[in-house]
Simulated scan of single mutants.
Amino acid sequence: MTKGMSYEEFKSSLRDSAARKQVLRSRGRPFHVLLSQQFGRSDIESLCDTATAIRRLDRHREGRGFLRGVLSGQRIMHLFSQPSTRTAQSFLAAADKLGANSRTVTDLSTSSFAKGESVEDAVRTLSSFFDAIVVRHHEDEFATRAAWALLRSHRPIPVISAGSGRSQHVTQSLLDVYTLRYSFAERGGIDGKTVLIIGDISRNRAARSLAYLMTKFDQPRVYFVSPREFVPERDLVQYIEKHGIEVRIHETIESMLREHGRQIDAIYVTRLQQEWDTGGAPTELGSSDPYILKTQYRELIRPDCVVMHPLPRVNELPDQWEEHPGFVVWRQVRNGMWIRAAIFAMVHGADEEIRARARRLELIP
């Protein structure tokens, strides 16, 4: 069925839950990683458990040796056409933890794309040499088109989106949920929690991906602070509300925190992404006053309120916040490596083996 599917039919299938499973899963597990919506609660729990198993095995002498053999002989292409430090290095470190070999292309002007090669031909060529492709691209549909092309080929390999234009950043949202799960481990988990997301939501792929993923939990609340021109798109709000989740939107951080600050369990700060605007010099890329999480706002929230940021940050989250007990940004960064290693294990069918070894060594329940 999928081999004869047109690209428009493939894109359409991604909007339907049942159809998504047909095109993005294989043998009962996620294969291509493109959207937050494709993951069910059981997928998320399994990924988080695998990430924890990898993290603990990596600290164990026997466990570390075992991990290095999990993907030994596998080759992973990291195709990054957008500037990236954390995401690229996180994926590379994750592959290395599991013993995979990595290659990276960052300058597409030195590749056949500069000669006009199509996405379809390029990824089918790469699939001859590699066992998975990680893609970060400025075009919204690059990863989607790559996955479609490979599903129609004789050698389909997983495509993992590392950020697609202004669309989604699914692996970022997965590491964010892993960080929330860790942070709320002694407070009943993510269910029922209130998460505040700050930024230009309509064009911030990390913010939107996290909002989509929150719908997989029981009765959370998702609040937003955003400039009026970049409020969450109606489709996103409707999707969240369809899952019975309360949504609130304010135009300033101060008004939100003065009204709801004590009930907020986590604040997810993002910068205003002025690089998408025309004009603005680099020195003007900071957030304006209503979207800076000022240090005096600490008195409006609880000490156990989790504070996160996907990075890079400019001025929107002052350094003084690192003194806040709930500040977990640097743990969040490191968790990116663990969750991306878990994703590699999942798409290659090695996650159950990893959890089994960790249980045998009494590293996880």
Rank of each mutant, 00 (worst) to 15 (best):
135 V>G: 00
153 S>P: 00
335 N>D: 15
287 S>P: 06
84 S>V: 10
219 Q>H: 14
28 G>H: 05
354 I>D: 06
124 R>E: 08
279 G>T: 01
282 P>Y: 05
221 R>H: 10
333 V>D: 05
167 S>I: 03
152 R>G: 08
137 H>S: 02
206 A>D: 11
173 S>T: 13
141 E>L: 14
56 R>K: 15
73 G>A: 05
274 Q>F: 13
159 V>E: 06
192 G>C: 04
41 R>S: 12
251 E>C: 03
360 R>Q: 15
153 S>K: 00
236 L>F: 13
242 K>E: 15
361 L>I: 05
355 R>T: 06
333 V>M: 14
122 A>V: 11
200 D>W: 01
291 Y>M: 12
155 R>Q: 09
238 Q>K: 11
60 H>P: 05
173 S>F: 09
82 Q>S: 03
202 S>L: 00
6 S>P: 03
7 Y>Q: 07
260 H>C: 09
251 E>Y: 11
10 F>D: 04
105 V>H: 04
227 P>F: 00
239 Y>A: 13
355 R>W: 01
31 F>Q: 02
10 F>G: 05
360 R>V: 01
258 R>E: 15
253 I>M: 09
336 G>K: 08
150 L>T: 08
202 S>K: 02
292 I>P: 07
292 I>H: 07
281 A>K: 12
189 G>T: 09
139 E>G: 01
152 R>T: 12
350 A>Q: 15
148 W>P: 06
43 D>T: 11
213 L>A: 15
24 L>N: 06
121 D>K: 00
212 Y>L: 13
156 P>T: 10
320 Q>K: 12
84 S>R: 04
268 Y>T: 10
356 A>G: 04
169 H>W: 07
109 S>H: 04
86 R>Y: 08
364 I>G: 02
285 L>I: 03
229 E>W: 02
196 L>M: 13
98 L>V: 13
7 Y>D: 05
186 E>A: 13
92 L>V: 10
